[in-house]
Design a protein around this nucleic acid. Sequence first.
DNA 1: ACCTGAACACCGTTCAAGT
DNA 2: ACCTGAACACCGTTCAAGT
Lengths: 252, 252
Amino acid sequence: MTTLPSASRSRRDRPAKPALTKAGIVETAVGIMRAEGLGRVTMRRLAQELDTGPASLYVYVRNTAALHAEILDELLGTVDLGPADTAGTAADAADEAAGDWRDRLVRILTSYTTVLFEYPGLAQSALVARPSGEHYLNLVEALLSLLSEGGVPAGRAAWALDLLLQFATATAAEQTTRDQAIDAQDEQDALTTALWSASSQTYPHIAALGADLLSGTGSDRLSWGFHVLINGTLHTPRPDTEAPQDHDHDQS
Amino acid sequence: MTTLPSASRSRRDRPAKPALTKAGIVETAVGIMRAEGLGRVTMRRLAQELDTGPASLYVYVRNTAALHAEILDELLGTVDLGPADTAGTAADAADEAAGDWRDRLVRILTSYTTVLFEYPGLAQSALVARPSGEHYLNLVEALLSLLSEGGVPAGRAAWALDLLLQFATATAAEQTTRDQAIDAQDEQDALTTALWSASSQTYPHIAALGADLLSGTGSDRLSWGFHVLINGTLHTPRPDTEAPQDHDHDQS
DNA sequence: ACCTGAACACCGTTCAAGT
DNA sequence: ACCTGAACACCGTTCAAGT
């Protein structure tokens, strides 16, 4: 609530009443989110910030879900897509510096995840309200480009793209929203207790794994997950369009 | 709103005022969810169904998120875990009938996904509020047992478990909640339009893939995803506890 | 067209007070 | 201990009426 430019009540204190446009509304919404979290970005709170009634917003935004989708695409503009692919002719020197395609793929996806991590409520929205804005398209293009460079067949790349983004988004969403940190801790404790007290009679495999089930840092797990998805994609042809390659453990 | 046993207002019409216990509360909550969807399972609506005030529920349930977690574990009891593993000695005949470990793994996960699909709002909760109830432990044990049978190293199995459940849960959550079918359709249209009108100058890879990006049935994609995760797990050692096996495309 | 006051129909959670 | 009436502080969305 400190960085918001128009926190005071009197409209005379504001620089100027912001124009009521879709762009202006989204911009104000992003401001509230940065200052107070996504949980406070409600139609009513937003209307208050814009010196109007909530009904006015429905001229520009279909509903709250659509508003959150707009915010998301805005945030997606801050994802680091790495060096622009210079039409992939022979820029091997630059490619070398940036690492191979896997590394660059993981780096972009990690950046995407990091952005969502800052506003975990947004990740939950992202899971449900697939965006279709310009920044989202830029991200998709960058990922497809790297998958193509890695030799992933086109049809498989289309599906792998979804898998990678979904994994990143879901991981951020798990980090949960706003102020429920206390509850989340309680749940974690409940789970830890449940796992440890799991009778080795009833749950031999859980008991055998023990603390291993909860081991690893978030960052290690995230990175491992990306590599699992990439390696798995390389080893799993699409059932509908690709003849089984009979590599080793491919889908039947 | 038809199958709910106590839909009428007068308390004399009810079989008996349900005992106010945690079990009774959860049971009633599940009833409301089946009849009216998770969106209607609110503390106030639940209290009304139990002929009391919302404040009374807070003696038994910490908050709404905890309530949803309880409901989830209840529903997890309906997941088909397949034939109980008879201590894995030499029941090869039964194993043969049920398919190999991959098939059984995918079958359980598909059953889990199907259960969540019926109440998509629940999947969103599941992503955030990891359950720790008995039914959840049963599911985890069954999955770990199959991963072990498949020769997945224990530490890797612990992480793979999370990946598999998260993918299933996120896929169900994407199917979105309650009545937003109209909006979801709009969003889908917007995405389709955005993808098709993507300039092949700015977005060459998106343009090249075209309709391929949205191809495939949900069921095919789900199955493919499971196989990607299984194959990927087999090809990706954990960075912290396993020496790099240098198989083919392993994590560096 | 664009904008809005007012209303409708809800929420979660807390707390002082009762039994 | 368990239970609750009442209040606090909010929500999304619609619609008739204004400009």
